[in-house]
Amino acid sequence: MTSQSASVAVTQIAGGLALSPLLIGVTQQAKARLQGRRGAGPLQPYRELRRLWGKSGVDVEGTTFVYRLAPVIVAAAMGAAILLVPIATGAPRLGVGQDALVLAGLLALSRLAVCIAAWDTSNGFALQGASRDLTLSVFVEAALVLSLAVAALVAGTTDLSGVIAGTAGGHLWTTPALALGGVAFALVIVAETGRQPVDNPDTHLELTMIYEGPVLEYAGRDQAYLQWALAARHWVVLVLAAQVFLPHPVGTWWQLALLPVSLGLLCIALAVTETVLAKMRILLVPRLIGVGAAVALLGIVTWLVETA
């Protein structure tokens, strides 16, 4: 392992594990400012994690090991996803490969874990959130796989390190396919991070919840794991967006240097959409994401025509 790849690896692991809550903090703070408030500062998620870490967990009566295992599985799956998503070209493999489609599998695993835990508790709101989440995921998964497929086709591999290298430079401007894939991926980001117009992380109304529903029954460290996993989910999709679908330079060091800027911009973009857009009607969300999948499909067709 060269010194370059070693430092990339360290940044990737440390960044993913430790900095991902900051993404949520920055988004929340930007939202507060946009809404005319002062906000609690970007470090608030860390304070929340600390508070939760100090609390004891609570079991729900009549549950099995599924309920207790779910937060662990979710966090472990997202941990593996952090190792899997390279933050720059030439990031070393950390044992889990760097395959884009495996990432989709890990996201599905964490989703499934919370959803079966929802059945374990038999909490109506948890199940309501789970059923909506899974319905939505049908379209999200199609859009995710297709948008990653666009990038994979452009780069000629599904290996994400290769994809980042393949889409670096001026590709975004010269390959319309990639831009279309980016549009689809933007919708995937919104859905995977549970933000408006798909879900509203700020209003806690039982009846409208999607992603918050299944985690209602967790407390203490379980909840800390789930909150961290949500942050890690932000990290994974935003890093991918920054390094695949946003313009990024060739060369590992340049990519690393620009990453904080792109991530910051993406967080602010999330905050802006969340402030100025209302949440969509729940039945329209799958259509929106479905349109995203269609756009990505169009991207593939564009690429096919271009290379034919």
Binding site: L34, Q35, N200, D202, T203, T275, V276, A278, K279
Partner: peptide, 13 residues
């Protein structure tokens, strides 16, 4: 109503 549809800007205003 703004809060009901999650339009944060309207709610705050």
């Amino acid at each position: 109503i703004c809060a009901g549809v999650g339009l944060a800007a309207g709610t705050s205003r």
